[in-house]
């Protein structure tokens, strides 16, 4: 396959960026999208140019590092992570636009690499259960109804890639935040911090400069792990409940 790539190039956070055009040839349909970029980068290095910077690590769809907007879609046309997208999803001669996540809370570091530390700070605000090592009771002391355990798991699957923010026209982090709130708040172990957790995490999310939610549903469509849109409504319910009940 031969492809035309238009890739966002930006030297660093403060520099101006622009789309640059590259032609890549000899692409196998069995390559992953990132392997296609590897091929481009090998060429660029040998030509004495700087390779395209992009985040990636596990390349099996679980670490959440890869983060490309491909033809306007976060993670590209399939519902998966960029690393699990294969070139057979494209056709010979296609022009492909590759851009970084766009959100003011995710400043560009270089080329296609963005800074997602805002997500870490949302978790730091309350996305945990305070259970210091050694203080745990016997695991079977508190049974958890299977539907609750399954619901917690479904939300805990979030890989923190940020596709939800990238896809949202408002750059909102509601789906990310709600995934963690719902994971922990549905469990009995998470109950003691239920109110403070949601209030603090929503406040942290707002402080990071993410936009508000207008329920466009773009986030859930882009999410490679299928975190469902009703997760947001569930967090709103938790938040409203907390504003009524929180003891401060």
């Amino acid at each position: 396959m031969k492809l035309n790539l238009r890739v966002w190039r930006q030297q660093n956070t403060d520099a101006e960026g622009a789309m640059a055009t590259y032609e890549v040839d000899g692409i196998s349909p069995d390559m992953s999208f990132l392997e296609m970029l590897d091929t481009l980068n090998e060429d660029l290095i040998l030509r004495g140019e700087e390779p395209v910077a992009f985040d990636h690590d596990c390349r099996e769809g679980i670490c959440g590092a890869c983060s490309l907007v491909i033809n306007g879609d976060a993670h590209g046309p399939e519902r998966t992570t960029t690393c699990q997208l294969h070139m057979r999803s494209f056709r010979d001669g296609d022009t492909i636009d590759v851009e970084p996540w766009r959100a003011s809370a995710f400043p560009v570091v270089k080329d296609l690499v963005v800074d997602r530390s805002a997500f870490d700070r949302i978790i730091q605000a309350g996305g945990y259960i305070s259970a210091p090592t050694g203080s745990a009771p016997e695991a079977h002391a508190t049974p958890v109804p299977k539907p609750d355990a399954d619901s917690a798991f479904e939300h805990a699957e979030c890989i923190g890639c940020g596709a939800c923010v990238a896809a949202c026209p408002n750059g909102s982090a509601m789906l990310f935040t709600s995934a963690k709130v719902n994971h922990l708040n549905v469990l009995p172990q998470g109950a003691p911090e239920r109110e403070t957790r949601v209030l603090d995490m929503v406040a942290a999310m707002d402080d990071e400069g993410f936009g508000g939610c207008t329920l466009t549903g773009e986030c859930a469509t882009a999410c490679p792990k299928g975190i469902p849109l009703p997760s947001i409504a569930a967090m709103n319910r938790e938040w409203l409940r907390a504003t009524r009940k929180a003891r401060r």
Binding site: V69, D97, R102, G211
Partner: peptide
Amino acid sequence: KARPTAYVH
């Protein structure tokens, strides 16, 4: 403000 740059595509 949260989404100052539009996607080119």
